[in-house]
């Protein structure tokens, strides 16, 4: 049984030059922590970024951490005390009596059996997400009154759902729940979200196209269409398109405009 995690960090405007790296950092740390807690997702994490939000959608997270017994072989019986102490520390045991002694055929060795009980993923996810946020590195970050956490700009709210249920993540006074907001000027008020699919739909209705690749494709298609209508040729500029893809936009629409020829040259000195 697996579940879906939806995590959105809504903040005040993230500097354009930091947006791409931020979403890479967020998804990388989230993936690492899911693996550390032995609930790696079955599907790659999807990361999205707009001027005001970082969003990670993770499908296929096991709902239950498996119960497990792990065996670790330690030093040979009669090895120096220092080696034995180091081994005990590494497996979290207090004394050699807690280990089993087995003859492997090449002599007697200490063995530690580490038992891990099964736990529900929802029990570990809040701490895991907090650790993820702490791990995101910004070129410059700031303090703000609502939380002890440093972030690039003040966090407005955090949307945090596992299988549609709000995770009990605590970020001081930053609201955590199932609420988000749409476009700053074209949409008003808060929006309640059920799950990732619902989230994407509701954002789009609130004038935010979350998927940066889709924004780029819309712009590219618009350029072609407009050029055809006007009998023009598009001068390809992949780096500009990439900048527009990531940058300070959450909507994609393309008007045409003109410059007067007189403005198309630089003054000479």
């Amino acid at each position: 049984m697996t579940g879906e995690l939806l995590l959105e960090l809504l903040s005040e405007e993230i500097p354009a030059r930091m947006q791409r790296r931020a979403i890479e950092e967020l998804t990388r740390h989230l993936d690492e922590w899911l693996r550390v807690h032995r609930i790696p997702p079955t599907e790659p994490i999807r990361g999205y970024v707009t001027a005001r939000r970082l969003t990670a959608i993770v499908n296929g997270i096991p709902k239950q951490l498996p119960e497990s017994n792990e065996e670790r072989r330690g030093p040979r019986v009669g090895a120096p005390q220092q080696a034995l102490d180091g081994f005990l520390r590494s497996v979290g045991l207090d004394s050699a009596e807690q280990c089993e002694v087995r003859d492997t055929g090449r002599g007697e060795f200490y063995f530690a059996v580490i038992h891990r009980s099964g736990r529900a993923a929802v029990e570990v996810l809040p701490d895991l997400i907090y650790s993820t946020l702490m791990g995101v590195e910004w070129p410059k970050s700031m303090r703000f009154p609502a939380a002890r956490l440093s972030w690039v700009r003040p966090l407005t709210s955090v949307l945090c759902l596992f299988d549609g249920q709000v995770l009990p993540l605590s970020l001081d006074e930053v609201p955590v729940g199932r609420m988000t907001r749409g476009h700053r000027f074209l949409s008003q008020g808060e929006i309640a979200v059920e799950n990732a699919a619902d989230y994407l739909d509701r954002l789009e209705a609130a004038y935010v196209i979350l998927d940066q690749d889709r924004r780029r494709d819309i712009i590219a298609a618009d350029l072609d269409r407009l050029a055809q209508n006007e009998g023009l040729t598009v001068k390809p500029d992949p780096s500009l398109l990439e900048e527009v893809r990531i940058r300070n936009i959450s909507l994609a629409s393309s008007p045409t405009g003109r410059w007067r020829r007189a403005f198309c040259s630089s003054p000479t000195t």
Partner: peptide, 17 residues
């Protein structure tokens, strides 16, 4: 638009984001 511009005043020993 809110466009990144971090402020600092060297004479005041002050900065902000």
């Amino acid at each position: 638009r809110f466009v990144e511009d971090d402020w600092e005043s060297p004479t005041l020993g002050a900065w902000g984001l």
